[in-house]
Structure formats: structure tokens, C-alpha cells
Design a protein around this nucleic acid. Structure first.
Lengths: 181, 181
DNA sequence: TGATACGTTCAGAATATTTTGAACGTATCT
DNA sequence: AGATACGTTCAAAATATTCTGAACGTATCA
């Protein structure tokens, strides 16, 4: 944290800031991004109080945000010998972070969407008998739209599963093969 | 919009609701998702007033949100003959929607991140001379982290470009080829 | 054991975001 | 032209989100 040089400090600051904006952009809180950035740009693990001091936010906020950060697998606790405090260190493998986030957050959402769609299709099928001529047309239109959505979400699901599954092979080679497809 | 059957109405409602939640989840406003859903589940284009009436929100809100929706290419205006009003219809190709969103929103963000990182690396390189022994170690650590981030964002950039570029071939086949990679 | 150094929680405060509705501008109608 | 039917804008209000800081619980120290 003691960081005398102006350029080093500037680089640190802009990275922290950038990750804050990025986090906000992706629907996380900005503080989460800044905390993550601060940890990422520190060779040594940092304690809750150090983080609060550095980012000039309350201990309570750090505590809650760090909880989220840990839940997303973006950082983990480190036990320092002879220290009573908790220390945190960033998960620096971005793909790992993405995998953690996807497996927790996006996946569930897609699954839920698929279930709702499935239930809707089922409901339409069952109602088919009791529909007037005009209603049947509307039902057919709905089925069309729902199928489109299902196809889309199934594809998205596959894509996400792929990313989550690839343990560390989301490398240049595998990407470029997709490009050829 | 006249939709007599209970089941049809329920399917419509849950789809609208679902897209609303999804929109919120991905950092759009919930109303945007609901507007999009409403349009998607209507065979006929709808006017601003009809949308406001249907979703029970103000005209102003519809106007502003529809602007966003159009900006993301999720819907477009349709001119009905003999009608003074604007009508909107949903872009029902989800991949097209995703491509529109990615090309407008995510891409720019990734590009910006890359530029910031590039600038930081440059700054570190230029400062190299004036650094103490200890500072050089820190600089080396920063460069490592920045390289990781750069690698990640370049990859993300490629992936996004791929999705945006693929005009309508984000189909099962091309995905499954990636899985083999 | 008592004192201390933490981390956590939560009600209230501060902010940020979204919505409303009235006012306004503009194109189309008679 | 005047009247009407829209779409848009924006300031104020309503909501939602995030932050704070004091209070509290707990584990560790002396």
C-alpha cells in the first residue's frame, strides 16, 4: 500500500477506477469493482480496515461488499500467521472469475427463463381445445414466439455451460476454432 | 390486444413479466423489458398510447423507454397507412437483438478498457527509469496484472466480435464445434 | 477473567434511478 | 387558419439502492 511513485500510484488508481466502472456496467456495485481492483493491484493481501481506509468507505460497506465478492469467487480470505484480522486476496484469473459468476448468476437465470417458457408452451397446448378460431391463431403466434425464445435460451445455455465447463482452456486456439465454424 | 382466453392472457403476462425481470437482470430498465415483451407478444404493432395503457405507465415513460429500445435495435417504428400515430413492432430475432446490444454497448466498454490498460502499461514502461529497486518490483507486479487483464479483454473482444459478425449463423452447428475445441 | 480488536448487522441517511404529469412543439386534420 | 392529436421534454415526486456509523457479538489476547 505504501506506494511512493506518482506513476505507479496513477496506474493503480486508474485500474481500480476502471474496474469500478466495469463492475457497475455489468450490474454489480461499483464499490465491489473498486475493492476487487484494489486487491488485484496489491501484491500483499489486505485487511478489511485497510480496504476501508484506502477506498475511504465505511467498514460496514467493505464488510458487506466483500461478502458479495467472496460469494462470486472474485477474492478469498487469507490467514496470515500471527494476525487476528482477516485478509483478502483477489482471484487474479479473470476466466475463473467469469466462470464463478456465470455458474452462480447467469446460469440460474437462463434456466429459470427456460422453465417459464416450457410451462407457457404446455399451457398453450392444453388450452388448445377450448379456443375459438381467432384465439387459435393467436395461440399459434404465441407458440412461434415462444419457440424462438426457447431456441435462443437453449443456445445461450449451451454457450454458458461451455464457458463454465472449460476449466482453463478458453484460450486463443479454442476461440479461433469457433470463428471458423 | 383484445385477448379473451384466460390461458392466452396468462401466457402473455408471464412472458412480459419474464422479459421484464430478464431486462432488469442484465442492467436494463424493467420497463424496457416489459415493453419489448408486450410488442413481441402482439401480432400487430402497437402505439405509444396503447403501450402506456396496457402496462399502466405514463406516456412519458413509454416515450423515453421506447427511445432506448429503438436505440438498442430491439424494436422499430412501423408506419400504418391512414394513421397519424407511430406504431412499434418488436425485433423478434433474439440473436439480432443481442448483436445490436453487443455492438453498441459491450463492445465500446471493452475497447475502452483495453485503451486504459494500454495507457497504463505505457506509463509504467516510461517510468521505469526513475524507479527505486522496490518500486521496480511493484511495477513488475503491476505489469503482470495488467497483462492478465489485457489478455482477458482481448479474448472477450474477439468473442464479442464473433457474435456481432456472425450474421445469422450462431446456430447449433457452430456452437457444437466450439465445444469440441 | 476482563479488556481489546476485530467483523457483522441494521436502521436511518444519502444517492441514484425511474416515473409521473403537465407544458410544450409539431404535424395533420377540417 | 384554427383545432386536434399526437410525441417529447423536464422538473418534481416516488422508489430503489447503497452507504454509514453506532451497537452488538465473538474470538483472542494479557
Amino acid at each position: 500500500m505504501e506506494n511512493s511513485n506518482k506513476n505507479l500510484a496513477a496506474v493503480n488508481a486508474s485500474t481500480v477506477e476502471g474496474l469500478g466502472l466495469l463492475a457497475r456496467f455489468f450490474g454489480f456495485s461499483e464499490v465491489m469493482g473498486r475493492l476487487y481492483g484494489t486487491l488485484l493491484m496489491n501484491p500483499e493481501p489486505l485487511s478489511l480496515d485497510e480496504l476501508a481506509e484506502y477506498l475511504q468507505i465505511s467498514k460496514g460497506s467493505v464488510s458487506m461488499n466483500m461478502r458479495s465478492i467472496e460469494r462470486w469467487g472474485m477474492a478469498k480470505e487469507v490467514w496470515m500467521k500471527g494476525e487476528r484480522r482477516k485478509f483478502y486476496t483477489a482471484e487474479s484469473d479473470m476466466w475463473q472469475v467469469i466462470r464463478n459468476i456465470l455458474s452462480g448468476r447467469e446460469m440460474r437465470e437462463v434456466q429459470r427463463a427456460l422453465h417459464v417458457l416450457e410451462a407457457s408452451v404446455e399451457k398453450l397446448r392444453q388450452a388448445e381445445g377450448e379456443l375459438s378460431r381467432e384465439e387459435q391463431e393467436l395461440a399459434a403466434y404465441y407458440l412461434e414466439r415462444l419457440s424462438d425464445l426457447q431456441a435462443f435460451f437453449k443456445m445461450a445455455d449451451m454457450a454458458l455451460q461451455m464457458v463454465v465447463a472449460s476449466d482453463d482452456e478458453m484460450d486463443f486456439e479454442s476461440i479461433s476454432k469457433l470463428e471458423l465454424a
